[in-house]
Design a protein around this nucleic acid. Structure first.
Lengths: 200, 200
DNA sequence: CATGCAATTTTGACACTGTCAAGATAGATA
DNA sequence: TATCTATCTTGACAGTGTCAAAATTGCATG
């Protein structure tokens, strides 16, 4: 009886809020996510969410954190299941951008200004992002050993720069700057050429 | 007598607004720029700015536009005055990131979500950005001929991807993600290695 | 000089935002 | 049954962007 809508208590408001918020930002962007409207769509009063999230920032941090866990899973899966190292890396580049463009609003929360600069990234968000980054650097080290990524610098440095390149590509498309999406596949291919040690 | 503060008319409100807004975002970020406070600091009533800028979006577009003109000048100057092509390009990479980090708030307006996705980029802003991009692509073509940038793709494509890489690097630092600024010089060097045709 | 017109600035108002404080209600526990 | 705590509500406040209508100014023309 804990899921009835006519009740005073909601059942699992925390979860409902996250799901609803996730849907709203996906369909309408973060800008049009307001705590009040969110509460309304979930069917609860304006300030009820504040008993589950300290403030709006905390809610958004939780959404971003989910994104990091998802991305880390993708990374680890791809690293484990790929046949050759080169193929694995190339696939990851594609998947990285695919994820970024498909879940662009979450991606923006994960890596964007809203939380990291304007906002106040929670400790668990920082932890999640660091963990994902660590998983990436570990893989980079392996990719260097297998001569997929260049060996002219440390895994950290190579990981940072290749990540920055992918991130930049993602951002330009996400933010809606004057790149046409039909150029994307070509750009991805060229980016891979830039990043890999064997230029071909 | 047109610059007296006790007057009813302001003299050159448009200019004052831009200057004041520029200062505010530089010191406190776009988030804490409100039309009302801006009007107040300039010494004018809340809605006065609306006779000079259609809305907040228009004001921000004007700021971004200034940034593009500045960047284009930098680019052209560097292209003209540099001794060797390689040196010119390397310098540009440094200057690009220097500008991005120093004027990070304007940079964010120029290339960020605020205007391009959440907002509504004005026609003149679009024109300015396109023009700057065009100048960049022209230079890329020259750099390809001089074997500084790789020849394995069109100037457009190479221009897009190298730009994306620089942009990504800039963004990670600007948005305050967990990169320490002491890593920046190293990362720039590595990025140059990734981008240049001669890997050394 | 006077008069009217257009540019400029003002006050008033509205809907919306995040979030705090105090009170009400439900379910769990003793 | 009584009490305690988690949960939710209503009320309130300060802040936001921006529209409409009124006021004021400077300029150009009579």
């Amino acid at each position: 009886m804990s899921t009835l809508k006519t009740q005073y208590h909601h059942g699992d408001l925390t979860k409902s809020l996250l799901e609803s918020a996730s849907l709203i930002i996906k369909e309408q962007g973060v800008e049009s996510l307001s705590m009040r409207k969110l509460a309304d769509t979930v069917g609860v009063s304006r300030t009820a969410p504040y008993h589950h999230f300290k403030d709006k920032n905390a809610l958004l941090c939780a959404l971003a954190e989910q994104g990091f866990h998802e991305q880390e899973h993708m990374l680890r899966a791809l690293r484990a299941q790929s046949n050759t190292a080169t193929e694995g890396f190339k696939k990851y580049v594609h998947i990285y951008l695919e994820y970024a463009l498909q879940h662009n609003e979450v991606y923006d929360l994960m890596y964007g200004r809203t939380l990291w600069k304007a906002g106040n990234p929670s400790d668990s968000l920082k932890a999640a992002s660091k963990q994902t980054f660590k998983a990436w650097i570990d893989w980079v080290e392996e990719l260097q050993e297998q001569n997929v990524l260049p060996n002219n610098n440390t895994p950290l440095r190579i990981g940072q720069t290749t990540w920055a390149s992918l991130h930049g590509l993602a951002r330009l498309f996400i933010d809606g700057i004057y790149l046409s999406t039909e150029d994307l596949p070509d750009m991805i291919e060229q980016m891979i050429k830039n990043l890999c040690s064997t230029s071909a």
